[in-house]
Every structure is written in structure tokens, then in C-alpha cells.
Simulated scan of single mutants.
Amino acid sequence: MTARESHLVELVDAEGAALGSATVSDAHTAPGRLHRAFSVFLRDPEGRVLLQQRAAAKTRFPLRWANTCCGHPLPGEAVTVAAARRMVEEIGVADVPLTEVGVYAYYAEDPATGRVEYEYDHVLVGDLPIGVHPEPDPDEVADLRWVAVPMLLGEIESDSRPYAPWLLGVAQRLAASPLAAHPSRADGR
């Protein structure tokens, strides 16, 4: 986990144009620096999305429920390439095509750790193939659960405390996407 804090992230402006780079640690130190990120949702054949409870060792929002996986592309790296790498690292799933369904820019302070999230977050969705089962890394993920998007939105709106602060926004982007109506195929075909 500590080594990841020294990785570079791509700083961006409010429209997502690249401005340079900073370390993960610097970008997440108050007041934070706006940088590119991604949030992935994997769906099952019923259209439910896979949530992860972030591991206790996470430096930002530990033990909160979040989308399937998230992270940062390296400067100049394609978001889908970085997301595919993190899916393997966090939940042990490879080779799932991902499609972007929107962007959610947000700022959130973690009162427990003093760290911040200030992200231009690309929201991605992919369909978990039948017979593929996540094998989460316990250093990254404390627990997993499947939930229907409407139920998730209702849970967050009634009590947001158990959830990562970006989850409502990224789930709303997914729910508003035309791909939300096609749970069997992320490419909409």
C-alpha cells in the first residue's frame, strides 16, 4: 500500500484536460489536487453491481463500501488499461471489457485519516462473465456484495455513512446511462 502512494497520477483541469502529474500522496494531501481517476462497476447477468468494502489498511475511507474497484491511471495511460490492471490487483478478475458511462468530479475529506479525494472520476461498467468468480486481495478488499442499483441508491440516500463519498455520484452516472438498460452486455449490442 505504501509503495502505491509514490505512484504518479495525472493532474487535470475541471474539463479533464491533462495539466501535469503528482504523486498519489501529494494529490491526496489537503487541500488536494484535481486528478484523473476511475471507478469500475462489474455487473452480473441479473444487472446487480458488485460492491467492495475497502480494506482497513486503505489510506482513504477504509472499511467503507464502494464500487467494484477504483484507482488512477498513470499520466498518459488509457483509463480502461489502468482499470483492467486494478481489477486484477483488487478483485482477481481479468479480461472484462469496460465501457465508460460518464464522469463524476468530486471533492471529499476523510475525517478519520485527514486525506482527501479530489477526482475527475471516469465511471466504467463491464459484465462479469458467467462462471467467473472474484478472488479479492485481502489487503485491498474486506468484503464483497452484490446489489441492484436502485436498491443501492436508496440505501445511500437513507444513510450514506457506510459508503465511500463518491459511490452515490458514480452509481447515479451508471443509472442514468443507456447501458444501465442492457445488463447482459456492456457494449449495448
Rank of each mutant, 00 (worst) to 15 (best):
S39R: 00
H35Q: 12
W65L: 00
P45Y: 07
A82R: 03
A37S: 13
N67D: 05
Y106V: 04
R33L: 09
A37T: 09
F61N: 10
V40L: 02
S39V: 00
E77G: 02
L34Q: 14
A37F: 04
R33S: 10
G71Y: 00
N67A: 04
M87I: 02
L42N: 01
V40C: 01
H72N: 15
R64D: 09
V96I: 01
Y104M: 06
R60M: 14
R36F: 02
E46A: 10
R115G: 03
T29I: 02
Y107E: 15
P31T: 09
R115I: 01
G47A: 04
T29H: 08
G71C: 10
A84V: 03
H35I: 12
K58H: 15
A82V: 01
R33M: 15
F41P: 00
T68R: 00
L42Y: 11
R36D: 07
P62K: 05
G102W: 00
P31R: 07
R85F: 01
R60D: 11
A94Q: 08
L34F: 12
T80A: 12
E100G: 09
D110R: 02
A57R: 15
R85A: 13
R86I: 08
D110V: 04
V93C: 11
G47D: 05
A112V: 13
I91T: 05
A108H: 01
L42S: 12
H28M: 15
Q52R: 11
R36Y: 02
P97T: 07
R115L: 03
G76I: 12
P111I: 07
D95N: 13
R60K: 14
T59G: 13
H35L: 10
Y104D: 15
P31L: 14
N67V: 04
A30C: 09
L34S: 13
A37K: 13
E77Y: 06
R60I: 15
R33D: 11
A105T: 15
C70A: 11
R36P: 13
T99V: 12
V101Y: 00
T99G: 08
